[in-house]
């Protein structure tokens, strides 16, 4: 084996070891979650083993029933699907307008929008609550949904505007000459070219809405409208936490979002690659 081959293999080996270590670090909490979900409460504290001695699959049934996941699951699917759809739809239109149209106060508006990213959610609880009250939307699905949508817009517009800015103007000009309308250009040219960015936004916003809990708890009162994260609350007491059921519940709550991630994975990799090539 010559020196260069050896060097190449060594590099590859070191890279694989380093990446393997990172992967283990990322996967271990997931492994611990699944392993704990199959243990009993006293075993979690008394025996720190990686695998349970007895596999308590019944924890999953108990968690599902006790946390009332059936109802919460549908709610979460609804908030996530509708919320993400409107975030992408509104933000792509707005981002395209910011990137391509000229109108007074465009820059100020854009920076104002970006500035809202700096405000933490707990900081807007009270004004949001008052606003929703005046609109008669407290304890309604629509109220919560509007909050989720408005919450996701600023970052989505920021990201998509960057993509639209970099699209070649020549393609759009050619389409205009061919008689395509502004909306047609947005719909037939800009959106398809921004697919990788949209895929990234879909996964990010799906994760955010699926895992969101604070806003739902503040805005909603009716248990029937609560998202899946509310179900996990029943396992966490003031002083004690039922870890096996909590972990089983977390595993159940994680599965849908993992599926979404796997479905969008290809586009996300493309999105990242496109972002890297742009620079």
């Amino acid at each position: 084996m010559n020196f260069f081959k050896f060097q190449k293999r060594l590099k590859s080996g070191v890279t694989h070891i380093a990446l393997g270590a990172v992967a283990i670090t990322c996967l271990f909490p997931v492994f611990w979650m699944i392993s704990s979900s199959l243990k009993t409460q006293d075993l979690i504290f008394s025996k720190m083993t990686l695998l349970p001695e007895v596999w308590n699959w019944s924890n999953y049934v108990t968690a599902f029933v006790k946390a009332d996941f059936g109802a919460y699951f549908l709610n979460s699917v609804f908030y996530t699907v509708v919320g993400v759809f409107f975030i992408i739809f509104i933000s792509s239109l707005a981002a395209y307008a910011f990137a391509r149209l000229e109108f007074p106060g465009k820059n100020i508006l854009f920076y104002l929008l970006i500035a809202t990213l700096l405000i933490p959610i707990p900081g807007v609880f009270v004004p949001l609550y008052l606003l929703l009250k005046s609109l008669g939307l407290i304890d309604t699905r629509l109220g919560l949904l509007l909050c989720y949508i408005s919450n996701g817009l600023a970052f989505a517009i920021f990201l998509l505007k960057g993509f639209f800015d970099d699209l070649p103007r020549e393609v759009e000009e050619a389409a205009l000459i061919d008689g395509c309308s502004r909306f047609g250009i947005y719909w037939r040219i800009a959106v398809p070219l921004a697919k990788p960015a949209i895929a990234t936004l879909v996964i990010m916003n799906s994760l955010t809405i699926w895992n969101e809990f604070l806003l739902a708890l503040v805005i909603l009162q009716d248990k029937a409208k609560m998202p899946i994260q509310r179900g996990l609350m029943v396992f966490q007491g003031t002083f004690i936490t039922d870890y096996p059921l909590l972990m089983a519940g977390l595993t159940i709550a994680t599965i849908p979002i993992v599926i979404v991630y796997l479905m969008m994975q290809k586009h996300i990799v493309k999105g990242i690659a496109a972002g890297a090539l742009k620079g």
């Binding site: 609880f125 009270v126 609550y129 008052l130 009250k133 407290i138 809990f213 604070l214 708890l217 503040v218």
Partner: peptide, 12 residues
């Protein structure tokens, strides 16, 4: 979160 909800509800 409970405290936030109470203070928001009190204001409203």
């Amino acid at each position: 979160v409970y405290k936030s909800k109470i203070s928001a509800a009190a204001t409203a």
